[in-house]
Amino acid sequence: MSLDETAHKPHDRLAAYLAADMAAVNALIRERMASEHAPRIPEVTAHLVEAGGKRLRPMLTLAAARLCGYEGIHHVHLAATVEFIHTATLLHDDVVDESTQRRGRPSANLLWDNKSSVLVGDYLFARSFQLMTECGSMRVMEILSNASATIAEGEVLQLTAAQDLATTEEIYLNVVRGKTAALFAAATEVGGVIAGVPEAQVQALHAYGDALGIAFQMVDDLLDYGGTSAVIGKNTGDDFRERKLTLPVIKAVAAADAEERAFWTKVIARGQQDEGDLDRALGLMRRHGTLEATKIEAQAWAAKARTSLEILPEGELRTLLAEIADYVVARVS
């Protein structure tokens, strides 16, 4: 990809706009992930934090605060908090999913072990709570602590819904709202809170983050059946192999005839997967149009995210946030 093409990505333009703030966030992250007595902590954390992730969530916090006219320093603390929460969940997720790849690199649990990943994730959660208290806002602490609980709840719900062909689209949406959208929504909402804007604007930022997070996860689920490892940072088809009931599969199961349902029961409910089953699953999803239907739903959530921004101050940042919503779904165009 050329430099010109990269420069036109809204994510990269947002990163350029927030470059000074993000430099401060990255410095704070490196400072707070240190440990005097347990060198394993910065080793594991650095492997994931410095793996070239897009840092979208902390940038959303910075952008929301700046959009609302905030001129203090606490948006940096909150952005670092959001990244620590996110990194902790990734460490735990890779253990739960028995993943071997994250952000295009070997996962931490593969390079070290499950115990290290779980305990370092716990450390980062603790660090995130230390950071959020430094803002001195009970409202901010309430939002971020509630989001942390919701993320954990969403992960447990996904665990109990996994491999259950009775899982509905409503349950799927609850899982997505928990494990992904909750942190997006909190990341943008706290930016408005520390800026002291009217409640209607704070709620608009929450709605933007919620809708953006849902669109983001739906697209991730789609990419698992049609993206490349370079784009999604994991192996294509991992969700199928892990028997995750994401939206394209849920829709295909709902539309299945008796023979097709028997196939889904074999590969998802029973976990009996043979060579060629992934290709057959893709064929069934294409037959029933579930990949396209999922893409349309993701686009609708992205449109909702853009609409939520309309009561916020006009300007370059608002435009960039709106374009981020478009970019999230353009990954499957």
Rank of each mutant, 00 (worst) to 15 (best):
L3T: 06
E5Q: 13
A7S: 14
H8M: 11
H11R: 12
L14N: 09
A19G: 07
A23C: 08
A24L: 14
V25S: 09
N26A: 08
N26D: 15
R30Y: 01
E31W: 04
R32V: 14
S35C: 15
E36L: 14
H37M: 10
I41F: 08
P42F: 03
E43V: 00
A46T: 15
E50F: 03
T61N: 03
A65Y: 00
R66E: 07
C68L: 01
H74C: 07
A80H: 07
T81P: 00
I85V: 14
H86K: 09
H86M: 08
E98Q: 14
R105F: 07
P106V: 09
L110G: 00
D113E: 10
N114V: 03
S116P: 00
S116Y: 04
V120N: 05
D122H: 07
Y123K: 02
L131K: 02
C135G: 15
G136V: 04
M138V: 15
R139E: 15
M141P: 00
E142T: 13
I143N: 00
I143K: 02
S148H: 06
S148C: 14
A149G: 11
A149F: 11
L157C: 02
A162Y: 00
Q163P: 00
L165A: 08
T168Q: 12
E170T: 12
L173T: 13
N174E: 15
R177H: 09
A182D: 12
G191Y: 07
V193P: 06
I194L: 12
A195L: 10
V197G: 04
P198G: 10
Q201S: 10
L205Y: 05
L212D: 08
Q217S: 11
M218S: 01
D220M: 04
D220R: 03
L222H: 06
L222I: 13
L223D: 09
D224N: 14
D224Q: 08
G226R: 10
G226Y: 05
T228Q: 10
S229Q: 13
S229N: 10
A230R: 13
V231P: 00
K234C: 05
D238A: 13
D239E: 09
E242A: 12
K244D: 01
K244Q: 07
V249N: 02
A255Q: 11
R261C: 02
F263E: 09
R270F: 05
D274N: 12
D274V: 00
E275Q: 12
E275H: 08
G276L: 06
A281Q: 04
G283E: 14
R287F: 10
R287A: 15
R287W: 07
H288C: 10
T290N: 08
E292Q: 15
Q299E: 15
W301R: 13
A303K: 14
A303R: 13
A305H: 11
R306E: 15
L309N: 03
G315P: 09
E316W: 05
R318F: 05
L320C: 07
E323R: 08
D326E: 15
Y327D: 10
R331Y: 00
R331P: 02
V332S: 12
V332W: 08
